[in-house]
Design a protein around this nucleic acid. Sequence first.
DNA 1: ACAAAAGTGTTGGAGATACACCCATGA
DNA 2: TCATGGGTGTATCTCCAACACTTTTGT
Lengths: 232, 232
Amino acid sequence: MPVSQSLHLSVDCVVFGYDNNGIKVLLINQKGIPSDNTHQPLTQLPGDLILMNEGLQQAAERVLFDLTQLRGVYLKQFHAFGDPNRVKDLKDRAWLQSVRHLPDQRVVTIGYYGLVSLQDFHPRPASFARSVQWADLGEIGQLAYDHNNILDQAFEALREQMESHHISFELLPKKFTLTQLQSLYEVVLDKKFDKRNFRKNVKKMTHVIPLDEKQTGVTHKPAQLFSYNPHK
Amino acid sequence: MPVSQSLHLSVDCVVFGYDNNGIKVLLINQKGIPSDNTHQPLTQLPGDLILMNEGLQQAAERVLFDLTQLRGVYLKQFHAFGDPNRVKDLKDRAWLQSVRHLPDQRVVTIGYYGLVSLQDFHPRPASFARSVQWADLGEIGQLAYDHNNILDQAFEALREQMESHHISFELLPKKFTLTQLQSLYEVVLDKKFDKRNFRKNVKKMTHVIPLDEKQTGVTHKPAQLFSYNPHK
DNA sequence: ACAAAAGTGTTGGAGATACACCCATGA
DNA sequence: TCATGGGTGTATCTCCAACACTTTTGT
């Protein structure tokens, strides 16, 4: 019986970055392969094989760090992708042959997504990432493997989480103004909200707590900062 | 680098069964091991290793069929479980040694859940299942591996799906009365609904369509049957 | 004093909730 | 004819959406 004796398992991280100009995604560019000029280095999500003794969540965090040096991003599992041919595409062959011992092996991957404030997280490439970029969600070209699909489903998951108001506040910046929170909602859900109504709703959420602290360095009335208490 | 060269991947199916008396779960009892009287056959969710050339969804459907002979159950992926020690518990060792070539190997599993009407689906044990049972959700003892945990999370996923009204109607019986639908909601969400209000809401759902058909064989006014159109 | 974003209440309407009686069937 | 669940409408209330001006700070 041909069971899953030899199957690779990976994690892929879809890290959304947020500032006042919209939503971006963290992508890495593969290193070129020195002795191969047929290889077009592709862009992909940060992801790699898991190690034998680490948990899945742990693997996602490690892989994200290994490739982009980001730490402390809250990652949430959203889906496993296991099409037997998901890494068999021609465009991906040269690269896989250069980085894997068994490049033809089937790879099942577990997708994680996260959301960070662009001001707080500054990725730097490492390992097999030649470079790292925050790419605009609207302007993503072809990615390696089935990563366009993974990205779409990750964004869908993020959106659903916000819509259902089951917000993991782990996904949000630690300190924020209500205007920032509102425009995050607006850009993710692609909807406008009324400022006063939005604030009324936030005040009902007992896990959103006002701090004794104000914005500084702004050229207008400084806003109150808020934080969240995940244990509520 | 110790990568995931040798790692097993499985699927586990959490099939909830519904009739007017509440929610049940489909469990299988492991066969005894002839030459081993230290082995206590355990109860577990239907699940097994995936094959090399099948997709994950396909694997879930096949495994469910192999063990319980059920076909046509709509299964939805909800989470991957990958704790490195999830199959290392003492209680599971004897069994794994009897069924696996590499019993000590790490196993990552993808969880699927489904919901069926108890009247329409009659499982029969096959493969390594000695017997099959619909167990009452409130009365589940210790299961093999981390299956108690998987079960809890599956029920949580089902509940969330119903709460958010993103109901996959694939999960519901093909033909149903509004009272049946209501009491399904009630038993899953553990809440009572008002009959008239519930019906008003259902009438707004354009994918719930009334049939020209009535209940038969009941000792009271026969109810109209409804179905759903998933393409709406 | 001006620019720029922060902050704040009220009202009308839609949608949710509460509630009780007649109907069709099989025994 | 009786027992059983099926099926229906209305009044109230709650919650959500719409809406505009004053406040605080830096320059």
